[in-house]
Computed example of a mutant assay.
Amino acid sequence: MEKLPKAVVFALAGVVLLIIVIIKSSVVIESGQAGVLFQTLNSGIDRENTYGEGFHIIAPWNDMIIYPVRQLSVSDQMKVLSVNGLEVTVDATVWYKPEYSKLPYLHQEKGRTYKDDILIPGISAAARSVVGRYTPEQLYSSKRDVIQNEILEEVQNKLASQYIIVSEVLVKDVTLPIKIKAAIERKLEQEQEALEYEFRLARATKEAQRQKIDAEGKAVANKILSASLTDKILTEKGIEATLKLAESPNSKVVVVGGGESGGLPIILGNQ
């Protein structure tokens, strides 16, 4: 078999080398990612530029370090102490992402493990600081939203110079010691029963007042009516009633006046 000419060999070697260089120099950054360029023969990390999505050509001796920059989340269960020293467990989720324009600084100063080295310790410290202000009863009953907002504020303050953006803290659960939880539930039940009793008592008092006012009104009305019913009015009313009865087919004899009735009509006989 004849040997290939040296020119062809060199040409093939050049093509292979060119392909390697192109592959090594081509970088594709996917959606939701960004890159940090490490310049081997220059000053190291390019601190001035964050490389966005798409196709990039770099020198083959350089390296592109790619980070996710979309919203990320981390969940953690933290054991912390309340204001009176009792241990509680806070189950929280934090939404975060690296600061896009400061990504080169994040990589250079914190590295790829910034979540474990910086973020999670910051969350734990914030949770300890916030939960330590409240009693177990406050944590169990009515302070969930307040705790979330305060932990978020604490985390944001602690990570303000760490090139990490924290957008939300969600406290999913606050777990108390079993005995403390049972005692709080008993107390809440007793308070609810007391409120229910006060409500029933207030309703009964209002009903009694209503009945008293109604009875007093009726008494006044009867008093006024009695004062207005003179003998003359009674006689007139009796006559009106007698005339109506006289028109009835059952009536036999109607005697007007006389007797012990004070002049009122007397009806005698019926069917």
Rank of each mutant, 00 (worst) to 15 (best):
K3Q: 08
D231M: 08
A127P: 00
K158I: 13
S142H: 08
A202E: 10
E207D: 10
S142W: 03
V155I: 15
V36W: 03
E168A: 14
L268T: 05
K187L: 12
G263K: 09
L119G: 11
N84F: 03
L18G: 12
E260G: 01
I147K: 04
M78H: 08
D46H: 08
K6F: 02
I239Y: 10
S25M: 01
V155M: 15
G257W: 04
V36E: 05
T205I: 03
D91E: 12
I266C: 00
S251D: 00
P249V: 01
A221S: 10
P104F: 11
A11G: 10
K24Q: 12
D46K: 04
S226K: 06
E216T: 00
E2F: 05
N270D: 08
A241C: 06
L103E: 08
Y67G: 13
L188P: 02
A126M: 01
Q162K: 15
G132Y: 02
V28L: 06
K79P: 02
A208C: 01
I164Q: 15
Q211T: 06
T242Y: 04
S82I: 03
K79R: 10
A241P: 00
G238C: 06
K212F: 03
E53Q: 09
K24W: 01
K223W: 05
N157A: 15
R144G: 09
E207T: 03
Q33P: 01
G85Q: 12
E137W: 01
I23Q: 08
K3V: 08
N149G: 15
